[in-house]
Design a protein around this nucleic acid. Sequence first.
DNA 1: CTGTTAGCGCATTCAG
DNA 2: CTGAATGCGCTAACAG
Lengths: 304, 304
Amino acid sequence: MALVLDAAERKGYTPNLAARSLITRKSTTVAIVVANITNPFYPQLIEILHNEFALAGYRTILLNEKTDAHLESYVTDLVRGAAIDGLVYVSALLDTPLIGNHDGGFPVVLLNRSNERATVDTVVSDNRAGGRLVAETLVNSGHHRIAVVLGPKNTSTARDREAGFLDQLHAMDVPFDTELKRAGQYSHESGFELGIELLRTSPPPTAIFAANDVLALGVLDAARRLQIAVPEDVSVIGFDDIDMAAWEAFRLTTVRQSLADMARAAAKLLLERLTSKDKIPARTLIFPIELVSRSTVGPPPASR
Amino acid sequence: MALVLDAAERKGYTPNLAARSLITRKSTTVAIVVANITNPFYPQLIEILHNEFALAGYRTILLNEKTDAHLESYVTDLVRGAAIDGLVYVSALLDTPLIGNHDGGFPVVLLNRSNERATVDTVVSDNRAGGRLVAETLVNSGHHRIAVVLGPKNTSTARDREAGFLDQLHAMDVPFDTELKRAGQYSHESGFELGIELLRTSPPPTAIFAANDVLALGVLDAARRLQIAVPEDVSVIGFDDIDMAAWEAFRLTTVRQSLADMARAAAKLLLERLTSKDKIPARTLIFPIELVSRSTVGPPPASR
DNA sequence: CTGTTAGCGCATTCAG
DNA sequence: CTGAATGCGCTAACAG
C-alpha cells in the first residue's frame, strides 16, 4: 500500500533503494551527460533538467564527457547494470558513439544536439534558421565582410549554424572569405584567441558571428583588449542568449533559444518514456529562435 | 575472481549494480549538494569533485539545495536507503539542518562552509584573513569610505569575510558607516542592484568590497550602467577569483582561494572515509588566501 | 584453489 | 483482504 509506505517512511523507516530497485527493475535515476559543466551554457540546462526529474521522483547522476574516462563503456555499464533508467545528452558532439548502444528501447533524449538518425528523441532549436537570421541581420546592417567563429567541428550546432549562415549569405549575394572562418572550442578562451586573430587580419572583418554566446563574450573581450570599439568598429553577434549575454558588460546581440523551454521539453520526453509501457516512436522537437537586439550590432565603420 | 570478472565485463557481461550494492552494502555513489548550479562559482568546484570521484570509481549524484524539495528528508532517505556512501556540501548556508543527521559516522565533508561544530570534515579558505586583507588593501590605497556587499546573512562565508574586514578596519582606525552595508544573494543580479543603491548614496563610497566575485561582477556592471569609472571613481574588490574575474571585461582585483586545491582536498577527505574502515576524527583544512591585483582597485578620487 | 550455496531487503506472488 | 513465501542478481562464505 502506498499510503502505508508513506506513513512508514515518515515514521523513520526507509526502504533500501538497492533492494527495491532490484525487484522493481527501476533505479529511479537518470543520467545527464554534459560536455563541460564549466561552460555557463550547461548549468542553466542542468538546473532545469534536474529540477524536473526531482519533481518526478528521479535522482540525477552527472556524467562528464570530458573527464569521465571511457564514457562510452561507462554509460553502457550503467545502462546494462540497471543503474539508470534513462539518459539525456546535453552535448552537441556528433561523434560520441554512445547513441548506437541504446537503440534497443533504452530511453534517451538528445538536448541541443541534432539527431541525424532519428532514432532517439531530440530537442533542438532551429539552428539553421538561426544562422540565416544572423546573416540577414548583419547584411541588412550593411556588413559585407563577416567573420565566423565556430565551436568544435564535430558539433551539430556548429555545423547547422554555419550552414544556415552561409546559405543566407549566398542567398543575399554576399561573398564569404574563408580566411575569416575559425573553429575552436565552445569557450571564452577560444573566442578570445580567435577574436584576436580575426581582428588582426587586414582588412579586418566589420562583423563577427560567434556560434555561441560564450564564444561571443570571448570575442568581445578580444575587441576590448585591442581597444576596438563595439559596435562602432566591429559588430558581434552570438547565439543562445545565456544570462550573461544581458549583463551590462556585454549587452550582446544574440539569437535566443528558449533554453528553459527546451530543457523542460527534454525532461518531459524522457519522463514519458520512463512511465509509459508502450513503445513510443522517436520524436524531434524543433524550437523557434528569435533575435535579441542589444548593443553589439551596428552599421559597419564608415566604409572609406 | 576479479580477473574473471574483468574479462567477463569486457566480453559483454555487466553485473547488476543494485544486486551488487545490496550485498556489498556500498553504492559507489556520492552526492554533491550545491545551492545553485547557475552561480559560476559552483561548476568549477563540481567539475573537480566529480572528476576525482569518477577516478576513484564513484558515481556522483547532484542535489540542489534550491530546487530539491525537502532536501533534508531527501538526503536522509538517500543515506538510510543506502543509495549514497558519502556526501559533500558545497554550500555556505549555515542553517541547513542536514548536518546533524549524519553525525553517526556517515561520511560527510563541507566544502567552502565553516563547521562551527567540528563534527564533520571541513575544507575552507581563511575567509577571515581574506576579509582583513581586503580592508588592509583598500585602506592602504587611501580609502576611508568603504561599502560592503554581502551574500545571504545565513552564510558562513559572508559572516567570516565581513568579520575579518571589520576587524581590520577597526585595527587601522578607519570608521565603518553601517549605511554602506548591504546583504543579498550571491548573484550577479544582487550585486548589480545593491551596487546601484550604494553608488547612489551621497557621499558615495570610494570603494566597495563584494563578498564574492559574482557579486563583484554585478557591482562592476552597476558602475558601468551609472557611467562611474572603475577604479578612478570607485574601487571594487571581490573574493574567490573565479575564472571570469580575469576576463578582459572585468579584470577584477580579488582575493584568491585555491578553489581547485580545495575541491581536490575535499574529495580526498571523503574518499579516505569511504575506503578506510577505521573511525577518522573530523578534520578541518584551512587554505591560505592571496590577493590578486588586477585593475579594479586604485586610489580614491582626488579628495576635494 | 574451484564450485556450490546462502542471503542481502525488498515487492510481488500465492495461499489462507 | 491480510499474511507468509518466493526470488530479483549478485558476492561472500563455505565446503569439497
